[in-house]
Design a protein around this nucleic acid. Structure first.
Length: 797
RNA sequence: GGACGCAUAGCUCAGCCCGGUUAGAGCGCUUGCCUCACAUGCAAGAGGUCCCUGGUUCGAGUCCAGGUGCGUCCACCA
């Protein structure tokens, strides 16, 4: 018997540090396009460069690592490319907040100094999140780390912009856009959240110029009336039919505006008459376009009244509203005020109420690219898992609007557009032109704006592999095999990667898309900092270990919508890791120090218990492998748990005790089965619990008889399930009877107040038929069993 | 206004695509055990109208239709 030098419990922390370090040093995760093997590639969804690890990342990375490690062990040429996103507006806001602590703002610093400061910020925090991903065990090729602002990736961004401009798909236009007055930038539709707000509906009379009374409008935003250029009614509205074409005095300004008729007006809402503000409302803007109305902007970039606001100039939106209402009231034009709940658009980054503004911005035409992305998914070039997410994808793309891609920020990819100061000629080019091609002027200035951060992340699968150059990586690993991400960025990111990928490579960027559920707290609430219900994965790893975190997340990753956290689960997974550890101790106590030879007797001649556990192992390997192929992480995790704990530990280890003591051929057979099953079991488990499995595998590795045995489990061969089940139906039945008999005996003993437990399992020894003498007659089993009962009853009395 | 997801044990969830033993797991609960791998453990238990109604079927937790409740996303009702 080998001396036992294993501690009683598994030390996760030590194992995590030791093995991750080792794997990296030995270059196990480094991809080499020149090596053979079918390619398997994933690009990581790049976390925000200054972000902090949260459970969403932990889930995402754990699942990716399970697939990647499995494929690596299966012999694929595997690339998992890591990196970070500069996260334009998010990072800029974070640094601005930091500046605010010093009582400064970015304008005081100026653009260059501010951007320098963001780079410093990135130096300080940029590695944090990646180190946190490593701690989970992410087997990325860390030598290929990329950042969206890397020179190579920036070159891809510039090329795409210039090409799309030349194709006419990127253009500059004055449109109604979403403006955040705090961030002072334009936002895309996706960056606006719609929140319920309790407001009022103000009823205001606009007097007819001819003095024949007034038309009453209802509005939620009285302050914008200063920019009104019409009143609109529905053409079929009997109440107003005769007024269409008349002119009214716009209160407080006296400006004269027309009453127009338009089908978009809802007769049921308010008074059925709408004040039209084409400068500050998207519906009104469209309406204004149809009727040739003037567009008046009354707010500046910080949402204060500008010169067009007349007497209200300098007031904030809120102040102006109060003042306007007061003035209307004193003018006797305010009919009534009703409480009114409605939705208000807010900046998804800072929660400030967004202002619809008329502004000249860069846009990307989406229709054709969207259609191509839709077709690719319909044709099955890319498949979503679960499949129902395809509906969401289609729905958005079918109704897509042009994308406002310019941002009035300082942190990001500066738009490669230049203007000649002398003749105002616009030049879009990869390099700054030395002279204006129109007037030969040399005073050329670059566009101040940067691109929406999702523009560069949309190129992530191609830019990280070296595009626009024709690199070995691009040829070998593109299209990537899988994209694994959360549903919250299907529009922001997945759809854009599809469109860009198809546009520039004529190939989809990934064959499968696995959409993870959203991680929620124990009450089913979304985790947010403001709610204070954030569970920190780092704390969980401190407490339970990285393996337990990974395993638990895999178990919870059923293909629904949400993952609801339950602390007990982590504890259970930690116990599972320890259970395996403890089983390893059992093995070490029962092996004799020499490698176990290939089966001491033919497998067919092994005892029933031995053949049973081998058959269960094969079934488990088959089921786990299939589940992973179909992204059923929870199924795979459950199968492993059931097999390891309830079949291998509960039954086979108990059943092996007797032959292990018996010595001779039976002992040799049991030893071989223990090592052989444990080895394969660890290989299948490794992608889920890489640290505990590696730690244990190293302990039993000397006993494994395999030519060219890998040095580490991380690169060991994934087991192939054998094609046939070695147990006949009769043997299955016999084994089933053994299990039932034991349970029955335990039940009787428990009822009689006797100690029950694993020792009792030795009792079933007589029920285990020796090879060649299969007990298949349930009746004789029952006889044996009732004898056993009698024995215990006698013993009891 | 559209669309989607979910509803199974006290709690958190599998099972449903592909209908067929006695519907499962973890945690919690009850009872008994420090038994020589493991008390992060062992053993024995209690606990279910599989949301409702109808349909298909020899047979429905599973398939179909309708409904109820909860949740989410999209959308320019001022």
């Amino acid at each position: 018997m080998a001396t036992l030098n294993l501690p009683k419990t598994f030390d996760s922390k030590a194992a995590e540090e030791r093995w991750f370090q080792t794997w990296i040093e030995l270059g196990y995760f480094t991809a080499d396009p020149a090596r053979p093997g079918k390619a398997f590639s994933i690009v990581i969804p790049p976390p925000n460069v200054t972000g902090q690890l949260h459970l969403g990342h932990a889930l995402n990375v754990s699942l990716q690592d399970i697939i990647v490690r499995t494929r690596r062990m299966q012999g694929y040429n595997t690339l998992w490319l890591p990196g970070t996103d500069h996260a334009g507006i998010a990072t800029q806001n974070a640094v601005e907040k930091d500046l605010a602590k010093e009582g400064k703002n970015r304008h005081q610093l100026g653009r260059d100094v501010f951007v320098e400061r963001v780079w410093q910020w990135r130096e300080t925090y940029g590695d944090r999140i990646l180190n946190q991903l490593r701690r989970i065990g992410a087997s990325c090729d860390w030598s290929r780390e990329r950042f969206t602002l890397d020179p190579g990736l920036s070159r891809a961004v510039t090329k795409v912009f210039v090409d799309l401009y030349n194709k006419g798909l990127i253009y500059r236009a004055k449109r109604m856009i979403n403006w955040c007055p705090r961030c002072e930038t334009a936002l895309s539709d996706l960056e606006v959240d719609h929140k319920d707000a309790q407001g009022n509906l103000w009823y205001i009379r606009y007097p007819f110029v001819d003095g024949s009374g007034a038309i009453m409008i209802a509005t939620t935003r009285p302050e914008t009336m200063l920019g009104d250029t019409a009143v609109a009614v529905n053409p079929s509205d009997e109440r107003y039919r005769e007024h269409v074409g008349k002119t009214v005095h716009l209160p407080l300004t006296g400006r004269e505006i027309k009453i127009v008729a338009d089908d978009v007006i809802d007769k049921e809402f308010g008074t059925g008459a709408l004040k039209v503000t084409p400068g500050h409302d998207p519906v009104d803007f469209e309406l204004g376009q149809r009727h040739g109305l003037e567009q008046i902007s009354i707010l500046d970039g910080t949402a204060r009244m500008n010169a067009n606001g007349g007497a209200y100039r300098g007031l904030s939106r809120e102040e102006a509203r109060k003042q306007v209402v007061r003035d209307l009231e004193s003018a006797g034009l305010l009919e009534k005020v009703e409480p009114h709940s409605h939705k208000v658009g807010v900046c998804s980054r800072c929660d400030t109420v967004v202002e619809p503004m008329l502004s000249e911005q860069w846009f990307m035409r989406m229709r054709e690219m969207a259609d191509r992305a839709i077709k690719a998914v319909r044709d099955g070039d890319t498949t979503f898992h679960p499949k129902f997410w395809e509906n969401t994808f289609f729905n958005w793309l079918e109704n897509i609007h042009d994308w406002c891609i310019s941002r009035q920020l300082w942190w990001g990819h500066r738009i490669p557009a230049y203007r000649c100061v002398r003749c105002d000629h616009l030049i879009v080019a990869a390099e700054r032109p030395a002279r204006c091609p129109e007037c030969d002027g040399s005073d050329i200035v670059q566009d101040d704006d940067v691109l929406d951060t999702w523009f560069s992340s949309g190129l992530w699968p191609i830019s990280t592999l070296g595009w626009p150059d024709d690199t070995p990586e691009l040829r070998r690993y593109y299209p990537t095999s899988l994209l694994l991400t959360g549903f919250d960025i299907i529009f922001f990111w997945v759809a854009r990667m599809m469109m860009f990928g198809l546009e520039f490579t004529d190939k989809v960027p990934f064959k499968d898309v696995y959409i993870t559920p959203l991680v929620r707290d124990a009450d089913g609430k979304k985790m947010t900092k403001s709610k204070g219900n954030v569970v920190d994965p780092l704390d969980l790893m401190d407490q339970y270990g990285a393996d337990a975190l990974r395993f638990t997340l895999a178990q919870l990753a059923a293909q629904g919508r949400d993952v609801i956290l339950s602390h007990d689960r982590f504890a259970a997974s930690r116990a599972f890791a320890n259970k395996i550890w403890s089983a390893a101790r059992f093995l070490m106590m029962n092996l004799d120090g020499a490698p176990e030879p290939t089966p001491p007797v033919e497998v067919a001649k092994l005892g029933l218990a031995e053949r049973w556990i081998l058959s269960r192992l094969d079934a488990t390997i088959r089921e786990v492998t299939r589940a992973i192929d179909e992204y059923e992480f929870n199924v795979a995790a459950m199968k492993l748990y059931q097999f390891i704990w309830h079949e291998f530990c509960d039954w086979y280890i108990e059943l092996s005790k007797e032959p292990l003591k018996a010595g001779g051929a039976r002992q040799a057979a049991a030893r071989w089965v223990l090592v052989s099953v444990f080895d394969k079991m660890l290989r299948v488990l490794h992608p889920f619990m890489p640290f505990v499995s590696e730690e244990i595998w190293q302990v039993i590795r000397p006993y494994i008889d395999e030519p060219n045995l890998a040095k580490h489990l991380a690169v060991a061969k994934y087991p192939e399930p054998s094609a046939t089940n070695p147990l006949s139906p009769e043997e299955e039945t016999a084994m089933q009877h053994c299990i039932e008999a034991t349970e029955a005996i335990n039940s009787v003993r428990s009822f009689l107040g006797y100690p029950t437990g694993k020792r009792v399992r030795a009792i079933i020894k007589p029920f285990i038929p020796p090879p060649g003498a299969i007990v298949s007659d349930p009746k004789s089993d029952r006889e044996l069993l009732s004898k056993e009962f009698e024995t215990w009853q006698v013993y009891a009395s």
